[in-house]
């Protein structure tokens, strides 16, 4: 084959155009007619403005919006469909998950959690390596938060309505004083959990594990001494619970477990059942009970057959 300039230039350009027809134009004919999915709704102006800030600050480089069939984490309740993206220009699928996927982030937390998190992500998530966005003006933080709260569209709206409802209730209870607040918190837990003591005895190893979990997940809001004065506290309302007031208020191991597992929707307290397995939740609950409440029911009656690995009975605190 004689490679004349014409052969090289025209030949390669013709190949390119042919390939563009096959891998860009043909799929376009098909995918540009995608119908909106059942969760789709259009964005408000504020949410659209927030999306521009999301783009401007490069959030897309660490957060995907692309839930796959193999995913377990945040948002995995819904596999992404082409119809979820029908107005996205540009589409923000992302290519790396340095942070969690945000397809369904809307309504996972109330707004105040997001503000604290934007001020410095380590305020609410001590191990996070996301940058602080305190440099954004308040006028920017609002639309950005609104955009994040809209992720998941109609699904997000459903969750947001739940957050708003329970925030009103939580604020009412908090403002009624500590007695009423603690009573309200406990009343919303199924009776079976309230009656349940921590089934594992207090042990040094268990407390050490609890300490580690507390530092990695809880410290930002509840503070290093459990008084609710962590760095996120100024941005959160109702404020993080002060554990040191809980003595003699009938806080069972089961109550602690349930609140950590399920979170308290409407408040900044997230659910941890995705992140922490059973033993870790019992351990951190007992750590809080032993060190901050100064009252633990670990291994109290009623108890079943001791697990094989449990240390020999010592009187729990």
């Amino acid at each position: 084959m004689k490679m004349t300039p014409l052969a090289v230039v025209i030949g390669s350009v013709l190949i390119l155009f042919t390939v563009v027809f096959v891998v860009v134009v043909l799929p376009f004919a098909h995918t540009s007619k995608t119908q909106p999915s059942e969760i789709f709704r259009s964005r408000t102006d504020l949410e659209a403005a927030g999306r521009q800030l999301y783009i401007a600050n490069g959030c897309v480089y660490c957060h995907t919006q692309s839930i796959r069939t193999i995913d377990w984490g945040l948002g995995a309740e819904r596999i992404a469909q082409a119809g979820d993206y029908v107005v996205d220009q540009p589409i923000l699928l992302g290519s790396q998950r340095t942070g969690p996927d945000l397809s369904q982030e809307g309504g996972e937390h109330p707004d105040d959690w997001h503000i604290a998190h934007f001020m410095n992500p380590r305020f609410t998530r001590p191990l996070s390596l996301m940058p602080a966005f305190g440099f954004l003006k308040e006028a920017d933080l609002k639309p950005l938060t609104q955009y994040v709260q809209s992720l998941g569209l109609k699904d997000a709206d459903h969750r947001m309505a739940r957050q708003v409802h329970w925030k009103t209730e939580a604020i009412k209870a908090y403002e009624a004083g500590p007695d009423a607040n603690v009573r309200w918190l406990s009343e919303n837990i199924p009776q079976g959990w309230r009656d349940l003591p921590n089934p594992y005895p207090t042990s040094e190893a268990g407390l050490a594990r609890g300490h580690k979990i507390y530092q990695d997940f809880c410290l930002g809001c509840h503070g290093p001494v459990g008084d609710g004065m962590g760095p996120a506290q100024p941005w959160i309302y109702p404020p993080p619970l002060n554990f040191t007031i809980l003595k003699n208020r009938e806080i069972s191991g089961g109550i602690l477990y349930y609140q950590i597992m399920n979170g308290i929707t409407g408040t900044a307290m997230p659910y941890f059942k995705r992140e922490l397995e059973s033993e870790k939740i019992w351990d951190v609950g007992n750590y809080v009970a032993v060190y901050f409440i100064d009252q633990s029911d670990a291994n109290a009656e009623p108890r079943g057959i001791d697990a094989a690995y449990e240390p020999k009975e010592e009187s729990a605190k």
Partner: peptide, 16 residues
């Protein structure tokens, strides 16, 4: 202004 298509076609073009 946008330098982008809309939705899935944008992803296909971008990675092409």
């Amino acid at each position: 202004n946008s330098g982008a298509l809309v939705g899935i076609p944008d992803a296909i073009l971008l990675w092409f």
